[in-house]
Design a protein around this nucleic acid. Sequence first.
RNA 1: GCUCGAAUGGUGGAAUCGGUAGACACGAAGGACUUAAAAUCCUUUGGCUAUUGCAGCUGUGCGGGUUCAAGUCCCGCUUCGAGUACCA
Length: 944
Amino acid sequence: MDYNFREIEKKWREYWIANEVYRVKENPARPKYYVLDMFPYPSGAGLHVGHPLGYIASDIYARYKRLRGFNVLHPMGYDAYGLPAEQYAIQTGQHPAITTVKNINRYREQLDKIGFCFDWDREVRTCDPKYYHWTQWAFQKMFNSYYDNAQGQARPVAELVEHLQKHGTEGLDAACSEEMSFTAEEWNAMGEKQQQETLMNYRIAYLGETMVNWCPQLGTVLANDEVIEGVSARGGYPVVQKKMRQWCLRVSAYAQRLLDGLETVDWTDSLKETQRNWIGRSEGTEVRFRVKDSDLEFTIFTTRADTMFGVTFMVLAPESELVAQVTTEAQRAEVEAYLDRTKKRTERERIADRKVTGVFTGAYAINPFTGDAVPIWVSDYVLAGYGTGAIMAVPAHDSRDYAFAKHFGLPIVPLVEGCDVSEESFDAKEGIVCNSPREGVEPYCSLNLNGLSIKEAIAATKKYVKEHNLGRVKVNYRLRDAIFSRQRYWGEPFPVYYKDGMPYMIDEKKLPLELPEVAKFLPTESGEPPLGHATKWAWDVAKGEVVDNTLIDNTTVFPLELNTMPGFAGSSAYYLRYMDPHNDEALVSKEADAYWQNVDLYVGGTEHATGHLIYSRFWNKFLFDLGISVKEEPFQKLINQGMIQGRSNFVYRIKDTNTFVSLNLKEGYEVTPLHVDVNIVSNDILDIEAFRNWRPEYKDAEFILEDGKYVCGWAVEKMSKSMFNVVNPDVIVEKYGADTLRLYEMFLGPIEQSKPWDTNGIDGVHRFLKKLWALFYGKDGWQVTDGEPTAEELKALHKLIKKVTQDIENFSYNTSISAFMICVNELTSLKCNKRAILEQLIIVLAPFAPHVAEELWHTLGHETTVCDAPWPTYNEDYLKENTAVYAISFNGKVRYNLELPADMPKEEVEQAAIIHENSAKWMAGKSVKKVIVVPKKIVNIVIG
RNA sequence: GCUCGAAUGGUGGAAUCGGUAGACACGAAGGACUUAAAAUCCUUUGGCUAUUGCAGCUGUGCGGGUUCAAGUCCCGCUUCGAGUACCA
């Protein structure tokens, strides 16, 4: 009987469904384990072989954990809101909901063929009202919360209001958009609208007038992580800066906790580093500078407090309000011309063209450490959005200041002993400080940094600044608040209505607020978002329901918000929803959350490092503050699977002919390389017949062959339709089966590494499954016997169990598949067909190739699924049957391995250790004092 | 520019702590079975020299270093990839 994977795989897929093998319930008697994949956006193109890579990896781990006795939660769902469905709707008029459902069904069909152990009963879709109910709910909670810095957590806005009523801003330490200062009397005297506007300064979800990334082509704003090098991540359209009133999330309030949390999670260092860079903590000092001949003062931020004595000019950002205040009459025209010019330049132009530009304001600032009056300039190399929008320039020790000083002929004062600043600045934070203060100059202040290291000088200056009230020690973050509005249709509607220009939340009990129907998916004529087309999009407060726009009276019926939420809204807390997906009372019940806690293993791509993985952590921390989530970090361990690139094939057409020349014969011809569909190429050999049938224009193609074959060229490129290098998993499953696909994807290399998909080589793992099958079925059919296993057979098996157990724990699946191949080859040559061996082999294979394992498991006479078999433990004794590996150490330190027969007497082992080739030379001139063979077979040689 | 990571045969990739580099697989070459093909099995396969005998030299991007011993550790480069970009 041959290995008939088609029949086997179909049979067990149906069995798993019929018997609900992958349904999982909370069970306090068993330890939990939560394995999660980043849920996919169901695109119209369907899955290619790259997509399941991570799913297979996590599936293997989930199955392994289950075999080890864990109650494993392994769900799957869809990130169903998004731009492509909407763009498609604009082009075709097809409602995004219809496209989305169609795509989801296609995805599901493809996923089902690969044999995943997902509990589909827990599926979530972000566009389902039952799901986005809780996205809207969380948003309302954020609106009704502020961040208390003193307590280090989110608190209800009601507490803030109470504080303001009693004390005003006195004693308030809250995250805010701008520092405010007013008394309780002033607060109480404010009208409703003014109070609401004031509270906006503190809410975690707030409406803010901020500079946003506006993408005209997409007609929407984008978050920072959705913009890459000045163009939109989706579509690659230009993005410009624009001031707009938008919903924002006060992610910045959580910057320090997001940073600290990284210490507690088990992620790769590179991913943690990426997040640290994105959060961009920088510890520095704020120092006040007085403007000469004026009452004005302004504050700068610096991380190099040690360079106070080298300040030779000041620079303001063009957007800074100070520019207008300090500019002298004489310079006003010139400054305004400069501001005009910079305003016109987009960010992209500023990045592309890094010419040094700037203008003198005519004003001078007094350096509080030297008393020097230094000129104040304006330049676009200083950013308004970071720090205070003003800097002190130390050209000797900052390359940007240096370029500026050189360009405008400003003085450069070096402050580090022995540094050379004639060609470039000395930016390194090392060396001994000098010129602080300068020799021969009457000291202006009592601070003297000369002779200190830079580190000491920074500390000394900070201390001085604090003691003399010149400023304060300050921590800045690069992380900005997340812009949360999108001018789009296909997203979660905000549960918000407007009264007197201020937003109000609709009653929590009336959620979800469902997405309305619209006639068109484009912005309205007046430039409002697509929801502006909805005719039934007003909120009746009295009735608590959506009513026709015509009923708006602004007393009981109000207009609803026209923006929708961004993509990351729905994906920020989905892992919590999987714990309790059918709950209509809460995002997740206390019981379910207490049991499942958080995700133990999260598998997905690095592309979400600064988007989803930041937002999700923020969102979860917020829910943690509210007592909804029991764990502060949502994803304990994170594995980033690499991207699968395409491997394109080329044919070479001789110019102006319909003749194609094989790869190694193309020298001497003028050829055009053309992409050819990889599905009609095998091991880089072109299927000529298939090629002729591929395109009508190739029907009469001629070929110049080498050795009777047409050899194609190849290159690694992105997997895409236009390169004809897309490989569909369905095709692989049809030809080789799901188990082969699973094994092959893992065999390609380490999970975390990006690599091109190359179907060459898949025969190797398919052959392995056939060999495995042949252990059970010989020419005469089923051949498993009940004999006692031999030592050699046990050794082969236990070597495998040991290796696979260790490899799975390390996510080193490619090497465990090698181990399987070795084991099966050994058992084949031993002609082993003993149940005791084969049964255990199947169990360890089950996570990798579940279908064939299930088939053989049942044929061995088991009634229940292999998924619940006990994972075998390995016995070291079997492994030491014939040879023993002696670890040899010298003086208890250095070691190497020596393989010797296990029954070799102790004295001979000692002798062998001494005469081992590598060490013999070295020991020739030394006397060996003592050789000790210890029980664990470590030989220690002590040298005199 | 900065940060992080990588570089091993024709190819994908192995190699716990520094201890016989190239496991496993693909591809290739030769052979067995077969009318033939497919499938299956066997042998060889880093390079160079030798080969009806054994073996020898060389070899993990480049140049140094530490060590009895380096793919692995240290210093300096080169190339590639990822992230980030006037963040003071």
